[in-house]
Amino acid sequence: MSPAATWSLVIALLAAGICSALGVWLVLLRQSLTGDGISHSVLPGLVLVFLLFGTRANLAMMLGAAVAGLLTVWLSREISRLTRIREDASLGVVFTIFFAIGVILITRSARQIDLDPGCVLYGLVEFVGFDTIAWAGYDVPRTLPILVITGVIVAAFLTLFHKELALMAFDPSLAHALRRHPHRLYLALMAMVALTTVACFEAVGSILVIALLIAPAATAQLLTRRFAPMMIGALVGGASAAVAGYFLAVRWNTSIAGMIASVLGAQYLLAVILISLLQRSRRSISARGASDPVLGGSV
């Protein structure tokens, strides 16, 4: 493999690891679509930072985007708290409006900004190896330090607050009674999602971010009812999909992000099939014990 190709794989793996770990909590909280909402609504944040400060500096743009993402979560919660709109609808309202504002800002300032909405969607994993900076004495992709730092922050957050996250997700009212501030913790988790979305999407595209947030966790959840195996399963699933997706994409000369998402879908499909086969065999075994062996399995 060429160095550039290796970097593509490394970046994809990093993104997969961060997203899959965080996604476990999104899926457990039944907030999967929040990832979808956030990844769309970071757009105006990016553009505004660029237009206001004329900078494409990573940190400033990331900050702007993360603020827009967090604002989406907070706004949609407040809207459904103050009115009778349900949370799924208020999320849809907020992120589509944000996205529309982002697209308008881009088109209106077409001469000043070279942000391609298409690249926001698909990402540019293929080319990360060609856009390098010097970091700690090495020539590394520009996105590597961002992803590494984000990974460290997210891993620290998930480890340090593990027991509070579990309490909040399982029983928010007890979390409140025990003074564990579930609402603030929820917003902090969403800030992690926003940060991750922003850090990853330049590298892998927002669609792959959504897939990596949801699919590995959903697949692992089918296979186990315990937390540690679910987390490990999600990480292994995400990482293996990144590797398999990468090589399949190279082989078929197609988009790496698209291929990784496809492999994630295939993994989930396999898990569904596996589970239903297991259930069927279990059912036919118990049916055989009780009734006619021929008719027993016919249900």
């Binding site: 027991k163 399982f170 009674a177 003074r179 564990r180 959840q221 679910m230």
Partner: peptide
């Protein structure tokens, strides 16, 4: 995905 003991232990988190 929590065990019975883990749920009970939540009572100590405060």
């Amino acid at each position: 995905p929590v065990t019975v003991a883990e749920v009970v232990a939540m009572g100590t988190y405060g």
